[in-house]
Design a protein around this nucleic acid. Structure first.
Lengths: 200, 200
DNA sequence: GCGCAATAGGAGCAGCCGCTCCGTTTAGTG
DNA sequence: CACTAAACGGAGCGGCTGCTCCTATTGCGC
């Protein structure tokens, strides 16, 4: 399993010190800006906030998409690593599952770009999203084995649910922060084995 | 109550026949294009598909947003009028509620622009979205009075749920069409009065 | 038919945004 | 300190998109 791995930050050796500093500044600024405004922001805004020129930015990241991907991977990776730790430390399988959802959604609450990429998952998705899928699968199996999960629920169901709730988290982020927790509770209760009716 | 009303198509009288024809053609083309590609499409595409020049399009609709709004209102309006009919004809309150969700989401399955505007509801939303909210409220009250709805569930909860599921409908539209029905069932089961635990 | 006001059409404008090019600056070395 | 390769910065290019302007066309009352 690759659930516990996470890609090294890779501070490649042969680079000049200022280049390294700028690269870090770009990633830091991009993380903030993408989280605030989503993936649609003007690249100039990121350059401005990181105190770097366009040329510099584009030497470090040949494409806006590549920068965005780097930032998103790093973000999700951090969250997942943390969530994984917490999941294996939780003995009750049901609490592990619900705790994971709460943690993931709570993290997404302030991050437009992550939610965008997470909900846009039509194709295979990035490596990190696949890791997220694998973690959900593991949690599902634990719950299923313990008999606390509604029969017939698939990992796809849980993954899709996480995406749908991400959307709810985002839309309520400013007007009704925290309302998503009610929805999460409702959905999770529908997932418990007390509801035994077969799914369509 | 304004639940049964719907705005007249308003074929204003003093206009020339060709103008009327073009207006209709624009709305028809825009409906298709917005549904397929979302609200972000190039206006030129709509002009092309409706066989009309840019000038003509912009005389009928002073702004792209106004055209989009017109189309969205009309679309949602049609759906809601239909859904309202069906809801009042259904005696069982619970079946009325679940039927409404199924109908609304099924309609949204092939319409990017509607889902976009529906899930983007941060502010007060359009008149039609408010009508949708009112309809959900009515269905909720019926269920609550009959004692089949989980205590503490608000109209906001149901409305937010509909938006979250809309997102799921869209993301699975092409790869796993119909999977959203499983999610709908799960969530609705979580809404039944069999789950009596208080919500956060 | 005739004349005119209403309508049509699409080239073009302005602003935004991803990305590049090249003259300038600077870190690291001996 | 001098020198060079590496890194920097930002003006500018090209393409896209919402919208306008002005000439040509056409429906409609007489």
């Amino acid at each position: 399993m690759t659930l516990a791995d996470h890609a090294a930050p890779a501070p490649r050796p042969g680079r000049r010190a200022d280049a390294e500093r700028n690269r870090a500044a770009i990633i830091e600024a991009a993380t903030v800006v993408f989280a605030e405004c989503g993936g649609g922001v003007d690249v100039r805004e990121i350059a401005r906030r990181s105190g770097v020129g366009m040329g510099t930015l584009y030497r470090h990241f040949p494409t806006k998409d590549e920068l965005l991907a780097t930032v998103l991977e790093q973000q999700l990776d951090t969250w997942l690593t943390d969530a994984y730790r917490q999941a294996v430390a939780t003995e009750d399988p049901w609490r592990a599952l619900t705790g994971f959802f709460e943690q993931l959604l709570g993290n997404q609450a302030g991050n437009r770009a992550v939610v965008e990429s997470y909900t846009a998952t039509g194709g295979p998705g990035s490596a990190c999203v696949q890791r997220c899928y694998a973690l959900i699968d593991q949690l599902r199996v634990r719950c299923a084995d313990a008999g606390v999960l509604r029969p017939g629920v698939t990992t796809d169901d849980l993954f899709l649910l996480s995406g749908a709730l991400s959307q709810a988290v985002l839309t309520t982020a400013e007007s009704h922060p925290g309302q998503w927790r009610r929805l999460l509770r409702i959905s999770l209760d529908g997932l418990s084995s007390r509801n035994a009716e077969p799914l369509p």
